[in-house]
């Protein structure tokens, strides 16, 4: 009974597949954040390579990490993840090495993009976008333009209840680390405690922790100053030109979102072709224009309109300046103490 209905299901799945796809169609499956690549990516890729692109979405790094560690990466060919997660996936033996011979467009990357600390020489990850984490604000609602992490962490009275911070643990803590001149990968207990006390104090002045709608809170005027990724601040700038972005004087982290190929990939050739496709000069430009993030694709960035760079000044931050900032790294054994500290902040009243 069970077998028969499975058989019917299989047969109908086959007939559907046969109707839509040409015989022996090639296919790859990727997972990316929703809205983090141009909507017509699959069509363009298919037109150019004849390979079907199936796109799954994840809301967070942690979500795709959970899926991939649970299944060993089965069913996915290419994943878009932030660099610390690429690093962890590689340590877990779930990634395939990048074969530069199959991805000639790697030459379109800025030289800086091949010297990233998490993966010098791009051995298991290819950078897709990069940028800074800083302050995004309504220049018409703040009394003084913010310049320091302390403007967020110890806000002036008029900003109390009008600020938000990122809830994702690593960036939340990074704000405190940077304000104190510490490494963004700090895990020693004394430093964790110090930053915890600061962030618990800041919590009293927060409107909310917000990872996903902070820029709309700026647009609506609910918030005046928010902790933000530069590219995401651009979505706010697109809706209201009074919104501005600044990298605080103490610096930022350098975050890098990467593309990786799973070891379990059923079509590693197709996966390499996909990465090569994304790295083409015209596609680099098209990606940057669509997602409004900086890409490490020199050829693509060089061809961006002047007007775009003027409207979104953070897109013009030079790669050499980006590389001055420290990248978030996987914390490994330090993660336990780090997580407990974050729980303490989250549970604090």
């Amino acid at each position: 009974m069970k077998l028969r209905s499975l058989g019917i299901l299989f047969a109908s799945a086959l007939s559907i597949a046969a109707g839509v796809m040409p015989a022996n169609a090639e296919k790859i499956v990727i997972s990316n954040w929703d809205g983090y690549m141009p909507k017509d990516m699959a069509e363009k890729f298919k037109a150019e390579t004849g390979i079907d692109l199936e796109v799954a979405v994840h809301a967070t790094n942690e979500e795709i990490m959970g899926k991939v560690t649970a299944s060993g990466g089965q069913g996915f060919d290419v994943l878009f993840v932030s660099s610390p997660f690429a690093e962890a996936l590689n340590q877990l033996g779930l990634l395939s090495p990048i074969d530069a011979a199959k991805i000639p467009n790697l030459s379109n990357l800025y030289p800086e993009a091949t010297q990233l600390k998490h993966d010098p020489g791009n051995t298991f990850s290819v950078p897709y976008s990069w940028g800074t984490t800083g302050l995004c604000y309504r220049s018409d609602l703040v009394k003084a333009e913010p310049t320091s992490w302390n403007d967020l962490l110890n806000p002036s009275d008029d900003l109390k209840g009008k600020i938000t911070m990122l809830a994702t643990d690593r960036w939340l803590m990074a704000a405190g680390f940077l304000a104190n001149g510490m490494s963004v990968n700090t895990t020693d207990q004394a430093s964790l405690d110090k930053v915890r006390d600061q962030l618990v104090a800041t919590k009293k002045s927060l409107l909310a922790y917000d990872d996903t709608t902070f820029y709309s809170k700026l647009v609506s005027g609910e918030a005046s100053l928010v902790h933000a990724w530069d590219g995401w601040c651009n979505y706010g700038i697109a809706e209201n030109d009074k919104i501005k972005y600044v990298v605080p004087k103490e610096g930022s982290d350098l975050w890098v979102d990467t593309m990786v190929i799973t070891k379990a990939s059923a079509n590693p050739e197709g996966a390499a072709k996909f990465i090569n496709f994304v790295l083409k000069a015209e596609n680099g430009k098209w990606v940057a224009e669509n997602i409004m993030y900086k890409t490490p694709n020199k050829a693509g960035m060089d061809s961006l309109d002047k007007a775009t760079l003027e409207k979104y000044p953070n897109m013009a931050i030079a790669p050499a300046d980006l590389l001055k900032f420290e990248q978030l790294r996987d914390l490994g054994a330090g993660m336990k103490a780090f997580s407990k500290t974050v729980s303490e902040i989250m549970a604090a009243k």
Binding site: G66, T69, K203, L206, A208, D210, K336, V342, S343, M346
Partner: peptide
């Protein structure tokens, strides 16, 4: 709660997803 209030469900969610513990 704007993420400012942590209930046990959030704590469990964070352990599975954020802390990966």
């Amino acid at each position: 709660g704007g993420g400012k209030l942590q209930m046990i469900g959030n704590l469990i969610y964070d352990q599975f997803l954020t802390a990966r513990d």
